[in-house]
């Protein structure tokens, strides 16, 4: 219970941290710092000419944000897959241990191992479906 409370508070803190500026100053443009730095160079070092152009530039800001979304989705997908597999493995171990306790000392190891293998295989299959939310 306490564990869930701490998790909820941490999530809320992260959301509050990034929502506050928007609520306080919604009129601001929130320009990226990377482009601000570029503008600063153009201002202070006016004679400087960029000597190389990007090999590929997304045609519009829509395409650009789409590609950023792809990057986030790839990362989120892999991260979710890993966390799902780890969680599934832990559940399998727990089930194995419970079964082992029930079956008694002598056969415990065998049965436990079998259950673990069986559940592990099942969980692996379930986890192989990529999670949807990043």
């Amino acid at each position: 219970m306490r564990r869930h409370l701490v998790t909820a508070l941490l999530v809320l803190a992260v959301i509050a941290l990034f929502a506050t500026p928007l609520l306080l100053d919604g009129a601001s443009e929130y320009a990226g710092t990377d482009s601000q730095a570029t503008e600063l160079i153009e201002e202070s070092d006016a004679g400087y000419e960029p000597w190389f152009q990007s090999v590929f530039s997304p045609g519009s800001s829509e395409i650009e944000s789409g590609l950023f979304a792809v990057q986030a989705a790839l990362g989120g997908g892999v991260l979710g897959y890993v966390l799902g597999r780890l969680k599934g493995r832990r559940t399998a171990e727990k089930t194995a241990r419970q079964t082992a306790e029930q079956t008694g000392q002598q056969t415990a190891e065998q049965t436990g191992q079998q259950t673990a293998e069986h559940t592990g295989r099942q969980t692996a299959e379930t986890a192989a479906t990529p999670p949807t939310t990043p």
Partner: peptide, 11 residues
């Protein structure tokens, strides 16, 4: 991949 707003008015 995620640009976040900051109190300085930039992201």
């Amino acid at each position: 991949a995620i640009k976040l707003p900051s109190i300085t008015g930039s992201s």
